[in-house]
Design a protein around this nucleic acid. Structure first.
Lengths: 342, 342
DNA sequence: CTGAAAGCGCTTACAG
DNA sequence: CTGAAAGCGCTTACAG
């Protein structure tokens, strides 16, 4: 019987390394090695420890390990939303990159809210993460300060940082907004509306690109912008379409800041009997799975979502391991996907 | 200067509770109380500690706290997928229920794979979770055994456990499959196909309900079942529709095991010029956001996704706190949503 | 290759 | 209300 069991302990009555060691007839240190660095232990003792682990159903205590080794093997990932397929695609890449490395991923949902991001970051910092993956470049002053003080490696996802030493993986949201707008202009559209919701930093950067293209073409008109702070949904896309049709005479195209809004807009056109792209061209952003399959198929911007997550996590891993990071800014580019709707 | 800094320490050079206590001129124990149970500390000392925390930028060490208190404040949530909107909706409910309680949520993506579930569970058990939220009722023998041995409270989501003492929140997948099929039968459909993918436990239970209804109506025909083990996608829905049209003569309705497949099937019908529901009725399951908005709008089964997550987390919290759990099985029901497509 | 000692940063359980 | 002592379960850093 173990000594612990005699003392009035706060323990959970769980099997510890000492129990395993006692059972195997070795020192705790040897049991620890047999489990974590088996090549350093003789075959005989290793086998005895392994057997004791099995028999006792030993589960290592991560908190104790983290405390003793000053290494948490935790990576924090902050995304603005989990219901938006954009970020679950990014997360899939992150998980695939981290999966073989035995890290624990703490996923935080900031809900597009700076205060929530701050709260989550402060909470997660208590876990002493080895690295942090952030969405976007815009953060509260407090977040930036806390991050700097923590000295934990950080990689930003979804857009490219202007500072060359900041690690970031994604593509230029401004350029992509510009390219999509140019595409519509080249197709001969004149009255091109911009439909945006949520108004997060990416949406606003795409709007910058839109404006630049419209100005260059002499087509700019602030009345063509429909910006709603509400969350992006298919329902809102349908609703904003109505408002744009009513308030923007001569409208012949709509650039939706994301595919959800574009889907809603197209569904509503179908209901109203408005032909797409005949009467109205509609395009989106991000190329969600439905976009290629709906009728008409959606012209949109293909973005490297999965790749962004994968490469950002890989870059972070390099930074954590102290590997040389030749290019802290990774531009994955984007593609205008010309399909039926525009 | 702190004593720690003189020793050859493995520490991270971070500010500790002792540093805060020294700065505030109190014992570490008092600093701990001032932070965690401020009402037990006099106003003067509390203020001094709070100031020291600010000045030093103290961040508590979660691992040390967990180790000392034998309480992790971690809750593990295992879902089969993050790209499936069904589970992100459930997760939203979980997060909202847990958010005010200051728990850390460890989200695990099992990828519809028993081995992956086992691997994740074993890894997460090292964090000594206070509770676990599982998706579904079917798990490997090892998972069940490890779970039982851990003595951690577990709540199953998405379906109802047959055992009355097992905590579960959701609705009967069999009954829902039955109800949707009956709806089609009542509409006068005779040759009703069942389109399924992934073939996870929920899909198979819905198939049971489908078969029961078809048998009762004397309409059963195994040739009407199209079961694919591939992941459910819109693309697959389009593809399986083609196969069903080619291989099931006289088909006049399709019950898709989820909305993604149904969307794909309807898009493909539109491409082929097949009128829905005129020539073919199509219905889905889960009522994803697009379903109400597409044209034709999708007849489907509305399921309490968010609520499932919220109530499951609340139930788990009760169990963790040792509160009486009057009803360990919570049936949230479902609704057949009659819309345009069937 | 093996192990005794010390310590990671915090909280429990007491005592005053 | 405050604090000294002990311990949570593991690993580091040595020594043999």
């Amino acid at each position: 019987m173990n000594k612990r069991h005699h003392t009035k302990s706060r323990a959970l009555g769980k099997v510890t390394l000492s129990d395993v060691a006692a059972r195997a007839g070795v020192a705790p240190m040897t049991a620890s090695r047999a489990i974590n660095q088996p090549e350093l232990v003789s075959a005989v003792l290793r086998a005895r420890v392994e057997q004791a682990v099995q028999e006792l159903g030993y589960v290592p205590n991560r908190a104790a390990r983290a405390l003793a080794s000053a290494c948490s093997r935790v990576i924090v990932v902050l995304v603005p939303s989990l219901s938006n397929a954009v970020f679950t695609a990014v997360l899939a890449g992150v998980q695939d990159a981290l999966d073989p490395c035995n890290y624990q991923i703490l996923i935080g949902n900031t809900r597009y809210c700076d205060a929530q991001e701050e709260k989550l970051l402060l909470a997660y910092l208590q876990s002493n993460p080895d690295g942090i993956l952030l969405s976007g470049l815009t953060h509260s002053a407090r977040v930036k300060q806390v991050l700097a003080a923590s000295r934990v490696p950080v990689v930003s996802m979804m857009d490219l940082a202007p500072e060359p030493d900041v690690m970031s993986v994604g593509f230029s949201q401004v350029d992509a907004g510009y390219a999509m707008t140019r595409y519509l202009i080249d197709k001969g559209r004149k009255r091109i509306g911009y439909m945006a919701a949520q108004l997060d930093e990416r949406t606003l950067r795409r709007a910058q690109g839109y404006r630049k293209a419209m100005q260059e073409a002499g087509l700019a008109d602030p009345a063509l912008e429909m910006m709603s702070p509400e969350p992006s949904t298919i329902a809102l896309g349908a609703q904003l379409l109505e408002r744009m049709l009513a308030g923007m005479p001569g409208l012949d195209a709509i650039f939706c800041c994301n595919d959800d809004l574009a889907h809603g807009a197209i569904f509503q056109c179908q209901r109203r009997g408005i032909s797409v792209p005949g009467q109205l061209a509609v395009c989106g952003f991000n190329d969600l799975p439905a976009s290629a399959w709906m009728t008409p198929s959606l012209t949109t911007v293909g973005t490297p979502l999965y790749r962004t997550g994968f490469d950002a996590a890989s870059l972070l891993l390099d930074a954590i391991r102290g590997n040389a990071v030749p290019a802290p800014r990774i531009d994955l580019g984007f593609t205008v996907l010309a399909r039926e709707s525009a």
